[in-house]
Amino acid sequence: MGSLYYGDATEPILIEDRALAHLKVVIATKLRRNESFTLSWKHPDGVLAGRSTIWLHPSIPLRFVFQFADSPDLSRAWIEDLAQSASSSGGITLVEEHLETAED
């Protein structure tokens, strides 16, 4: 399980490594463009039930911490899904991975 530290929060946001790697690409792209947006996710099992949303802004510190040292192979389709949601008025919603098949 990876961790996303945002601002001065001492408790990390827990996100599975593979999902966090994909989010990192989309978030870094948006912040590099000096764009602000929201990020919403459902809480993982074993954590307080529900969902959360944070406001991401280029001036607020952000740190990605991965459980595993090796970077996973990235899915272009999943990055595109996340990027599309990032450009919507609702901001990034951590959607399930679009599994690529031979037909994709």
Rank of each mutant, 00 (worst) to 15 (best):
M1L: 12
M1I: 11
G2A: 15
G2L: 05
S3I: 00
S3H: 11
L4Q: 01
Y5E: 06
Y6D: 01
G7F: 06
A9L: 12
P12K: 14
L14Y: 14
E16C: 02
E16D: 14
E16K: 02
R18H: 10
A19I: 03
A19S: 13
L20P: 11
A21H: 15
A21F: 13
H22A: 09
H22Y: 04
L23C: 02
L23K: 01
K24V: 02
V25N: 05
V26H: 04
A28H: 04
A28M: 05
T29P: 00
T29G: 08
T29L: 13
K30H: 03
R32T: 11
R33C: 08
R33Q: 15
N34A: 11
E35K: 06
E35L: 07
E35F: 01
F37I: 08
T38N: 12
T38Q: 09
T38W: 03
S40A: 12
S40K: 13
S40N: 07
S40F: 04
S40H: 13
W41M: 03
W41C: 02
K42N: 01
H43N: 15
D45T: 10
D45M: 10
G46M: 09
G46I: 07
G46Y: 05
L48C: 10
A49G: 08
R51M: 06
S52A: 08
S52M: 02
S52C: 01
T53M: 03
T53I: 04
W55Y: 13
W55R: 11
L56M: 15
H57T: 07
S59Q: 14
S59D: 14
I60V: 15
I60S: 04
P61H: 09
L62K: 09
F64A: 03
F64S: 03
V65Y: 10
F66N: 06
Q67K: 08
Q67C: 08
Q67T: 15
Q67N: 10
F68P: 00
F68Y: 10
F68G: 00
A69L: 10
D70Q: 14
D70F: 06
S71A: 14
P72I: 06
P72M: 07
L74I: 14
S75Q: 06
S75F: 07
S75E: 00
R76A: 11
W78R: 05
D81R: 13
L82H: 09
L82F: 07
S85C: 00
A86Y: 02
S88P: 08
S88G: 14
S89K: 11
G90E: 08
G90M: 02
T93P: 00
T93D: 01
T93H: 06
L94N: 04
V95S: 12
E96F: 01
E96Y: 01
E97F: 08
H98S: 07
E100N: 11
E100V: 15
E100R: 09
T101Q: 01
T101K: 00
A102L: 15
E103D: 14
E103R: 06
E103I: 04
E103L: 10
D104E: 04
